[in-house]
Design a protein around this nucleic acid. Sequence first.
DNA 1: GCAGCACGTAGTGAATCGGG
DNA 2: CCCGATTCACTACGTGCTGC
Length: 274
Amino acid sequence: MMYKKYGKVFKKLRLQKNFNLSEFERCGINKSIISRFETGKTMISFENLYMALTELNISLAEYDRALNNFSADDVNIIIDKILNAERKQEVFKLKQLYNTCINENLFMLSIAVKSKFNILSISEIDTLRILLFDVEIWGYYELSVFFLTLEEFNEPYILQTIKRIIHQNNHINFIEFSYKRRLFEILYKASAFFSTRGDERSARFLLDTYSIEEIGDDLYINNIRNITIGVYLYYFKNKEFGKKRIVSALNIFKELNQEVYFKYYKKKIAEILE
DNA sequence: GCAGCACGTAGTGAATCGGG
DNA sequence: CCCGATTCACTACGTGCTGC
Protein backbone atom coordinates (compact mmCIF):
# COMPACT_ATOMS: atom_id res chain seq x y z
CA MET A 1 0.00 0.00 0.00
CA MET A 2 2.09 2.90 -1.16
CA TYR A 3 -0.79 5.34 -0.53
CA LYS A 4 -1.21 4.42 3.13
CA LYS A 5 0.59 7.51 4.41
CA TYR A 6 -1.69 9.88 2.45
CA GLY A 7 -4.70 8.67 4.40
CA LYS A 8 -2.78 8.56 7.65
CA VAL A 9 -1.73 12.19 7.36
CA PHE A 10 -5.24 13.19 6.27
CA LYS A 11 -6.64 11.53 9.41
CA LYS A 12 -4.16 13.37 11.63
CA LEU A 13 -5.25 16.67 10.10
CA ARG A 14 -8.95 15.81 10.33
CA LEU A 15 -8.70 14.87 14.01
CA GLN A 16 -6.69 17.98 14.68
CA LYS A 17 -9.61 20.00 13.30
CA ASN A 18 -12.17 17.96 15.27
CA PHE A 19 -14.02 16.72 12.19
CA ASN A 20 -15.88 13.42 11.99
CA LEU A 21 -16.46 11.45 8.79
CA SER A 22 -20.14 12.39 8.43
CA GLU A 23 -19.24 16.05 8.21
CA PHE A 24 -17.78 15.51 4.74
CA GLU A 25 -21.21 14.51 3.46
CA ARG A 26 -22.21 18.16 3.28
CA CYS A 27 -19.63 18.60 0.52
CA GLY A 28 -20.88 15.42 -1.11
CA ILE A 29 -18.27 12.88 0.00
CA ASN A 30 -19.57 9.58 1.32
CA LYS A 31 -18.00 8.79 4.69
CA SER A 32 -16.89 5.31 3.59
CA ILE A 33 -14.70 6.91 0.94
CA ILE A 34 -12.88 8.86 3.64
CA SER A 35 -12.75 5.87 5.97
CA ARG A 36 -11.19 3.57 3.38
CA PHE A 37 -8.77 6.30 2.36
CA GLU A 38 -7.67 6.92 5.96
CA THR A 39 -7.21 3.21 6.66
CA GLY A 40 -5.22 2.74 3.47
CA LYS A 41 -7.73 0.35 1.87
CA THR A 42 -8.24 2.46 -1.25
CA MET A 43 -7.12 5.74 -2.77
CA ILE A 44 -9.38 8.78 -2.96
CA SER A 45 -10.02 10.72 -6.17
CA PHE A 46 -8.23 14.02 -6.54
CA GLU A 47 -11.53 15.96 -6.65
CA ASN A 48 -12.71 14.40 -3.40
CA LEU A 49 -9.39 14.95 -1.67
CA TYR A 50 -9.40 18.57 -2.77
CA MET A 51 -12.97 19.08 -1.55
CA ALA A 52 -12.29 17.36 1.77
CA LEU A 53 -9.18 19.48 2.37
CA THR A 54 -11.15 22.61 1.46
CA GLU A 55 -13.77 21.57 4.03
CA LEU A 56 -10.94 21.32 6.58
CA ASN A 57 -9.66 24.70 5.44
CA ILE A 58 -6.32 23.15 4.46
CA SER A 59 -4.60 24.01 1.18
CA LEU A 60 -3.02 21.37 -1.05
CA ALA A 61 0.38 22.91 -0.35
CA GLU A 62 -0.18 22.60 3.38
CA TYR A 63 -1.26 18.98 3.02
CA ASP A 64 1.81 18.27 0.90
CA ARG A 65 4.04 19.81 3.55
CA ALA A 66 2.40 17.76 6.30
CA LEU A 67 2.82 14.66 4.15
CA ASN A 68 6.54 15.18 3.67
CA ASN A 69 7.50 16.62 7.02
CA PHE A 70 5.62 14.14 9.15
CA SER A 71 6.95 11.10 7.33
CA ALA A 72 10.47 12.46 6.89
CA ASP A 73 10.66 13.39 10.57
CA ASP A 74 9.48 9.96 11.63
CA VAL A 75 12.10 8.28 9.45
CA ASN A 76 14.85 10.63 10.65
CA ILE A 77 13.99 9.76 14.25
CA ILE A 78 14.29 6.05 13.43
CA ILE A 79 17.64 6.65 11.70
CA ASP A 80 18.99 8.55 14.71
CA LYS A 81 17.81 5.80 17.07
CA ILE A 82 19.59 3.21 14.92
CA LEU A 83 22.87 5.13 14.95
CA ASN A 84 22.59 5.64 18.69
CA ALA A 85 21.94 1.96 19.33
CA GLU A 86 24.82 1.06 17.03
CA ARG A 87 27.23 3.37 18.87
CA LYS A 88 26.23 1.85 22.19
CA GLN A 89 26.18 -1.67 20.74
CA GLU A 90 22.61 -2.25 21.99
CA VAL A 91 21.79 -5.39 20.04
CA PHE A 92 18.29 -5.81 21.46
CA LYS A 93 17.38 -2.25 20.49
CA LEU A 94 18.80 -2.77 17.02
CA LYS A 95 16.59 -5.83 16.59
CA GLN A 96 13.55 -3.82 17.73
CA LEU A 97 14.44 -1.07 15.24
CA TYR A 98 14.81 -3.71 12.52
CA ASN A 99 11.17 -4.67 13.13
CA THR A 100 10.16 -1.01 13.09
CA CYS A 101 11.79 -0.64 9.66
CA ILE A 102 9.95 -3.69 8.34
CA ASN A 103 6.62 -2.36 9.65
CA GLU A 104 7.25 1.09 8.18
CA ASN A 105 8.29 -0.38 4.81
CA LEU A 106 11.80 1.08 5.13
CA PHE A 107 13.32 -1.74 3.13
CA MET A 108 16.87 -0.44 2.55
CA LEU A 109 17.14 0.75 6.13
CA SER A 110 15.96 -2.62 7.44
CA ILE A 111 18.86 -4.35 5.68
CA ALA A 112 21.23 -1.67 6.98
CA VAL A 113 20.14 -2.25 10.58
CA LYS A 114 20.31 -6.01 10.15
CA SER A 115 23.96 -5.69 9.14
CA LYS A 116 24.66 -4.37 12.66
CA PHE A 117 23.52 -7.52 14.49
CA ASN A 118 23.72 -10.16 11.77
CA ILE A 119 25.90 -11.06 8.82
CA LEU A 120 24.10 -10.12 5.61
CA SER A 121 23.52 -12.74 2.93
CA ILE A 122 25.04 -12.24 -0.51
CA SER A 123 21.60 -11.60 -1.98
CA GLU A 124 20.83 -8.94 0.65
CA ILE A 125 24.08 -7.12 -0.13
CA ASP A 126 23.34 -7.46 -3.85
CA THR A 127 19.85 -6.03 -3.43
CA LEU A 128 21.20 -3.10 -1.48
CA ARG A 129 23.94 -2.50 -4.03
CA ILE A 130 21.39 -2.36 -6.84
CA LEU A 131 18.99 -0.10 -4.90
CA LEU A 132 21.75 2.35 -3.96
CA PHE A 133 23.07 2.27 -7.52
CA ASP A 134 19.68 3.48 -8.72
CA VAL A 135 19.56 6.41 -6.29
CA GLU A 136 19.45 9.65 -8.26
CA ILE A 137 18.82 12.10 -5.45
CA TRP A 138 20.78 11.40 -2.29
CA GLY A 139 18.64 12.36 0.69
CA TYR A 140 19.37 11.90 4.38
CA TYR A 141 17.76 8.44 4.23
CA GLU A 142 19.91 7.14 1.37
CA LEU A 143 23.08 8.65 2.85
CA SER A 144 22.38 6.99 6.19
CA VAL A 145 21.76 3.58 4.59
CA PHE A 146 25.06 3.87 2.71
CA PHE A 147 26.88 5.05 5.84
CA LEU A 148 25.65 2.06 7.84
CA THR A 149 26.53 -0.51 5.17
CA LEU A 150 29.60 0.98 3.52
CA GLU A 151 31.95 -1.81 4.60
CA GLU A 152 29.71 -4.42 2.94
CA PHE A 153 30.69 -3.24 -0.55
CA ASN A 154 33.87 -3.56 -2.58
CA GLU A 155 36.33 -0.70 -3.01
CA PRO A 156 35.44 0.43 -6.56
CA TYR A 157 31.75 0.53 -5.70
CA ILE A 158 32.36 2.59 -2.54
CA LEU A 159 34.51 5.08 -4.43
CA GLN A 160 32.11 5.35 -7.34
CA THR A 161 29.12 5.86 -5.01
CA ILE A 162 30.90 8.55 -3.00
CA LYS A 163 31.84 10.36 -6.20
CA ARG A 164 28.17 10.38 -7.21
CA ILE A 165 27.21 11.77 -3.79
CA ILE A 166 29.89 14.48 -3.94
CA HIS A 167 28.83 15.41 -7.46
CA GLN A 168 25.34 16.14 -6.13
CA ASN A 169 26.69 18.18 -3.19
CA ASN A 170 29.26 20.51 -4.72
CA HIS A 171 27.90 23.48 -2.76
CA ILE A 172 28.72 22.11 0.67
CA ASN A 173 27.94 25.36 2.48
CA PHE A 174 24.27 25.27 1.52
CA ILE A 175 23.77 21.81 2.97
CA GLU A 176 21.63 21.31 6.04
CA PHE A 177 23.53 20.53 9.29
CA SER A 178 22.71 16.86 9.93
CA TYR A 179 22.98 16.00 6.23
CA LYS A 180 26.44 17.57 6.14
CA ARG A 181 27.55 15.54 9.15
CA ARG A 182 26.37 12.30 7.57
CA LEU A 183 28.22 13.16 4.37
CA PHE A 184 31.47 13.70 6.27
CA GLU A 185 30.93 10.55 8.32
CA ILE A 186 30.78 8.63 5.03
CA LEU A 187 33.91 10.30 3.62
CA TYR A 188 35.98 9.63 6.73
CA LYS A 189 34.67 6.13 7.36
CA ALA A 190 35.55 5.29 3.75
CA SER A 191 38.95 6.94 4.04
CA ALA A 192 39.81 4.87 7.11
CA PHE A 193 38.51 1.80 5.29
CA PHE A 194 40.87 2.45 2.35
CA SER A 195 43.78 3.13 4.73
CA THR A 196 43.37 -0.29 6.32
CA ARG A 197 43.43 -1.83 2.84
CA GLY A 198 46.60 -0.01 1.87
CA ASP A 199 44.99 2.16 -0.78
CA GLU A 200 46.74 5.43 0.00
CA ARG A 201 45.45 7.30 -3.06
CA SER A 202 41.79 6.69 -2.27
CA ALA A 203 42.25 7.33 1.46
CA ARG A 204 43.88 10.66 0.68
CA PHE A 205 41.36 11.61 -2.00
CA LEU A 206 38.51 11.16 0.49
CA LEU A 207 40.30 13.21 3.15
CA ASP A 208 41.04 16.01 0.69
CA THR A 209 37.59 16.15 -0.90
CA TYR A 210 36.63 19.09 1.30
CA SER A 211 39.03 21.51 2.96
CA ILE A 212 39.01 22.60 6.63
CA GLU A 213 37.48 25.92 5.55
CA GLU A 214 34.61 24.09 3.96
CA ILE A 215 33.98 22.10 7.14
CA GLY A 216 33.80 25.26 9.23
CA ASP A 217 33.80 25.13 13.01
CA ASP A 218 31.80 21.93 13.50
CA LEU A 219 33.77 20.28 16.29
CA TYR A 220 32.35 16.82 15.65
CA ILE A 221 33.36 16.79 11.99
CA ASN A 222 36.79 18.22 12.79
CA ASN A 223 37.29 15.54 15.39
CA ILE A 224 36.39 12.60 13.18
CA ARG A 225 38.56 14.20 10.49
CA ASN A 226 41.52 14.21 12.89
CA ILE A 227 40.90 10.58 13.80
CA THR A 228 40.82 9.70 10.10
CA ILE A 229 44.01 11.64 9.41
CA GLY A 230 45.54 9.73 12.32
CA VAL A 231 44.58 6.43 10.71
CA TYR A 232 46.07 7.61 7.40
CA LEU A 233 49.36 8.64 9.08
CA TYR A 234 49.46 5.36 10.99
CA TYR A 235 49.23 3.28 7.83
CA PHE A 236 51.26 5.34 5.36
CA LYS A 237 53.62 7.69 7.21
CA ASN A 238 54.47 7.20 10.85
CA LYS A 239 52.71 4.89 13.33
CA GLU A 240 53.57 7.06 16.36
CA PHE A 241 52.38 10.33 14.76
CA GLY A 242 49.19 8.60 13.71
CA LYS A 243 48.46 7.21 17.16
CA LYS A 244 49.13 10.60 18.79
CA ARG A 245 46.72 12.36 16.49
CA ILE A 246 44.02 9.74 17.14
CA VAL A 247 44.46 9.84 20.91
CA SER A 248 44.25 13.63 21.09
CA ALA A 249 41.09 13.64 19.00
CA LEU A 250 39.54 10.93 21.16
CA ASN A 251 40.41 12.91 24.27
CA ILE A 252 38.48 15.88 22.95
CA PHE A 253 35.37 13.72 22.88
CA LYS A 254 36.10 12.76 26.47
CA GLU A 255 36.70 16.34 27.60
CA LEU A 256 33.40 17.35 26.05
CA ASN A 257 31.64 14.58 28.00
CA GLN A 258 30.84 12.82 24.72
CA GLU A 259 31.38 9.43 26.34
CA VAL A 260 29.33 7.59 23.74
CA TYR A 261 31.44 8.92 20.85
CA PHE A 262 34.65 8.43 22.83
CA LYS A 263 33.93 4.76 23.51
CA TYR A 264 32.57 4.11 20.04
CA TYR A 265 35.54 5.54 18.16
CA LYS A 266 38.03 4.07 20.61
CA LYS A 267 36.62 0.62 19.93
CA LYS A 268 36.58 1.20 16.16
CA ILE A 269 40.19 2.38 16.24
CA ALA A 270 41.24 -0.63 18.31
CA GLU A 271 39.75 -2.89 15.62
CA ILE A 272 41.46 -0.97 12.81
CA LEU A 273 44.94 -0.66 14.28
CA GLU A 274 45.19 -4.40 15.08
C1' DG B 1 -9.83 -0.16 -35.79
C1' DC B 2 -13.04 -2.05 -32.75
C1' DA B 3 -16.34 -5.29 -30.33
C1' DG B 4 -16.32 -8.28 -26.51
C1' DC B 5 -14.45 -9.65 -22.34
C1' DA B 6 -12.06 -9.82 -17.79
C1' DC B 7 -10.22 -7.27 -14.17
C1' DG B 8 -9.38 -3.59 -10.88
C1' DT B 9 -11.05 0.02 -8.17
C1' DA B 10 -13.78 4.42 -6.79
C1' DG B 11 -18.13 5.32 -5.07
C1' DT B 12 -22.89 4.09 -2.70
C1' DG B 13 -25.81 2.84 1.03
C1' DA B 14 -26.69 -0.44 4.47
C1' DA B 15 -24.94 -3.51 8.00
C1' DT B 16 -21.85 -4.24 11.55
C1' DC B 17 -18.32 -3.16 14.96
C1' DG B 18 -16.72 -1.17 19.16
C1' DG B 19 -15.65 2.33 22.72
C1' DG B 20 -17.83 5.41 25.99
C1' DC C 1 -27.65 1.96 24.06
C1' DC C 2 -25.56 5.61 21.05
C1' DC C 3 -22.77 7.26 17.61
C1' DG C 4 -18.67 7.47 14.89
C1' DA C 5 -15.79 4.33 12.23
C1' DT C 6 -15.32 0.44 9.42
C1' DT C 7 -16.66 -3.19 6.35
C1' DC C 8 -19.57 -5.44 2.97
C1' DA C 9 -22.09 -6.22 -1.29
C1' DC C 10 -23.07 -4.01 -5.07
C1' DT C 11 -22.78 -0.67 -9.30
C1' DA C 12 -20.29 2.05 -12.59
C1' DC C 13 -16.54 2.98 -15.12
C1' DG C 14 -11.81 2.87 -17.00
C1' DT C 15 -8.15 -0.03 -18.92
C1' DG C 16 -5.84 -3.58 -21.23
C1' DC C 17 -5.99 -7.86 -23.76
C1' DT C 18 -7.71 -10.81 -27.59
C1' DG C 19 -9.56 -12.13 -31.89
C1' DC C 20 -11.57 -10.59 -36.01
